[in-house]
Computed example of a mutant assay.
Amino acid sequence: MGSFSIWHWLVVLLIVVLVFGTKKLKNIGSDLGGAVKGFKDGMKDGSAPDAATTPAAPAQQVANQQAADANTIDVQAKQKH
């Protein structure tokens, strides 16, 4: 079988351009590039600085839940058949 030669890949590229058109391929490329850039920015933002502030948030949520529990009425919903 072996690998494909450069001519095989050029024919495949020509067929893809004919089927999708250059404008559609350009849009796909820019969308893919934007997604990769957004992913890299998200990974960079999710590093060490956020890890230091995360443990404090659950303690505040627990305190707020305990204050709200005094006024909360627990009920159980039933479905009609």
Results as ranks from 00 to 15, higher is better:
residue 28 I to C: 03
residue 36 V to H: 06
residue 74 D to H: 06
residue 41 D to E: 15
residue 40 K to R: 08
residue 61 Q to Y: 15
residue 81 H to W: 11
residue 67 A to I: 03
residue 44 K to C: 07
residue 41 D to V: 06
residue 68 A to L: 04
residue 14 L to S: 07
residue 15 I to A: 05
residue 76 Q to E: 15
residue 55 P to A: 02
residue 15 I to G: 02
residue 6 I to T: 09
residue 73 I to S: 11
residue 9 W to G: 10
residue 17 V to S: 00
residue 54 T to I: 13
residue 66 Q to S: 08
residue 28 I to A: 04
residue 18 L to G: 02
residue 38 G to Y: 03
residue 57 A to S: 08
residue 12 V to W: 04
residue 56 A to E: 12
residue 58 P to Q: 03
residue 73 I to Q: 13
residue 68 A to V: 03
residue 25 L to G: 00
residue 24 K to H: 08
residue 7 W to V: 08
residue 19 V to T: 03
residue 64 N to T: 15
residue 65 Q to C: 14
residue 38 G to S: 11
residue 64 N to A: 14
residue 31 D to C: 12
residue 11 V to S: 11
residue 52 A to I: 08
residue 29 G to M: 02
residue 49 P to G: 02
residue 58 P to G: 01
residue 30 S to P: 03
residue 46 G to W: 05
residue 77 A to R: 07
residue 73 I to R: 10
residue 80 K to W: 15
residue 8 H to C: 11
residue 38 G to V: 04
residue 5 S to N: 12
residue 51 A to H: 11
residue 58 P to N: 03
residue 41 D to M: 06
residue 21 G to P: 00
residue 9 W to D: 14
residue 11 V to F: 09
residue 2 G to S: 05
residue 13 L to F: 12
residue 34 G to R: 10
residue 37 K to S: 15
residue 80 K to M: 12
residue 81 H to M: 09
residue 37 K to E: 06
residue 62 V to K: 03
residue 81 H to L: 11
residue 27 N to L: 13
residue 20 F to E: 02
residue 29 G to Q: 01
residue 53 T to E: 15
residue 76 Q to Y: 11
residue 41 D to Q: 09
residue 51 A to E: 11
residue 31 D to A: 09
residue 59 A to T: 15
residue 2 G to W: 02
residue 12 V to Q: 04
residue 58 P to A: 02
residue 54 T to N: 08
residue 20 F to V: 01
residue 13 L to T: 14
residue 44 K to R: 12
residue 29 G to H: 01
residue 35 A to C: 05
residue 65 Q to W: 10
residue 74 D to T: 15
residue 80 K to E: 08
residue 80 K to Q: 12
residue 41 D to K: 10
residue 39 F to E: 07
residue 72 T to F: 01
residue 70 A to I: 12
residue 29 G to I: 01
residue 51 A to T: 14
residue 79 Q to Y: 12
residue 43 M to Q: 09
residue 4 F to W: 14
residue 23 K to H: 07
residue 15 I to L: 08
residue 78 K to D: 13
residue 51 A to V: 13
residue 22 T to N: 05
residue 56 A to R: 11
residue 19 V to L: 01
residue 78 K to V: 05
residue 17 V to M: 02
residue 14 L to N: 13
residue 79 Q to V: 13
residue 63 A to W: 01
residue 55 P to I: 01
residue 9 W to F: 14
residue 56 A to H: 11
residue 43 M to A: 09
residue 48 A to Y: 12
residue 22 T to G: 05
residue 16 V to E: 00
residue 47 S to K: 15
residue 4 F to H: 13
residue 40 K to W: 10
residue 29 G to Y: 03
residue 65 Q to M: 14
residue 20 F to Y: 03
residue 48 A to I: 06
residue 75 V to H: 03
residue 52 A to F: 13
residue 3 S to M: 15
residue 2 G to Q: 04
residue 24 K to Y: 13
residue 33 G to R: 04
residue 53 T to Y: 08
residue 59 A to F: 10
residue 74 D to F: 10
residue 2 G to I: 02
residue 9 W to E: 11
residue 54 T to H: 15
residue 5 S to D: 07
residue 19 V to R: 01
residue 1 M to H: 09
residue 40 K to A: 12
residue 56 A to T: 15
